[in-house]
């Protein structure tokens, strides 16, 4: 996945295999057709549905307190889960890429776990742990701590599901960069922290940003795991994706698609931010990769 941050200018300009114009056109045409049919059209549909009954109805959808609560909850969950996963992701990637230790492969596998199991199961794991009859349930009840069917449970499930994004971006990059720049910095007398700040971090910042953006998009959009632990209490434990489903099931299609538009808009904004940064810093990016 990390090659997504590589700048386009690195790619060879010449046609490597010299395909004929027809083949080239056919390939490009197929790709465009696919993108239009499977990505662009559905997205347009979301926007059109949202505005089907006019802009007034669209904006009215957001005056509903339950909808606002869902938007706020989604932002809150992302605001906790994303920085947490960025920090832990950096630490885990650092440990895996720069050191050799027993159990390293196990750790690598564990990092992939949230990707490889269904989000529903991720949610059920937390139900097993924290529900009234779960392992920790009786203790939590005795101490009056609410986790499942409350905001902490939603945050936990989101953290779990979105954990791999940052680490998965960083590990291959840090492994390919090796440890010699850090070793050079250390022999030059830099402290460990100084080395991290001035050498490691600048080298991974694009991959880190990319991972954080993906992590954020998923944190705001996660449905399965959150649905299992949410309890679906209107105005309290419904995130935007859950609220969209509820609105849809209440035949409130305009409101459902209005919220969906907001969610899709946030995702698009994320991608635009990423593209802008890549374009703005293309030179620096190229310099740091052509080495």
């Amino acid at each position: 996945m990390s090659d997504a941050v590589l700048p386009a200018i690195e790619r060879p300009r010449a046609q490597p295999m010299g395909e004929s114009g027809l083949v080239k056109g056919l390939l490009i045409g197929t790709a465009l057709l696919f993108l239009t049919a499977f990505l662009f059209l559905p997205l347009i549909t979301v926007f059109l549905e949202g505005f089907r009954k006019g802009a007034d109805v669209f904006f009215d959808s957001f005056s509903d307190p339950d909808t606002m609560a869902a938007v706020k909850l989604t932002l809150l969950v992302a605001a906790i889960a994303v920085p947490f996963n960025a920090l832990v992701g950096i630490a885990a990637s650092w440990a895996i890429a720069k050191f050799n230790f027993a159990g390293k492969n196990l750790l690598l596998t564990l990092i992939d776990l949230p990707f490889s199991i269904s989000p529903v199961i991720s949610g059920l794991v937390y139900v097993l742990l924290f529900s009234a009859h779960g392992w920790l349930g009786p203790w939590l009840i005795a101490n009056d701590i609410e986790i499942i069917f409350a905001v902490p449970g939603i945050v936990l499930a989101t953290v779990f599901v979105t954990f791999p994004f940052v680490a998965r971006e960083l590990i291959p990059l840090m492994q390919s960069q090796g440890t010699s720049e850090e070793e050079a910095a250390l022999t030059l007398g830099a402290s460990g922290f100084h080395t991290f700040l001035r050498v490691t971090l600048p080298n991974i910042k694009w991959a880190l940003l990319y991972g954080v953006l993906l992590c954020n998009a998923r944190a705001m959009g996660e449905f399965g795991a959150v649905s299992v632990v949410s309890g679906h209490i209107r105005g309290l434990t419904n995130t935007m994706p859950l609220h969209i489903e509820i609105l849809y099931n209440e035949y409130n299609f305009v409101a459902a698609f209005a919220v969906a538009t907001l969610l899709a808009g946030l995702a698009l904004l994320t991608l635009v931010a990423k593209s802008f940064l890549e374009w703005r810093y293309a030179g620096e990016l190229a310099a740091s990769h052509r080495h």
Binding site: S131, A132, H133, I148
Partner: peptide, 8 residues
């Protein structure tokens, strides 16, 4: 099921 699992 959710109530059994602790939904208040």
């Amino acid at each position: 099921r959710a109530v059994i699992d602790g939904l208040d």
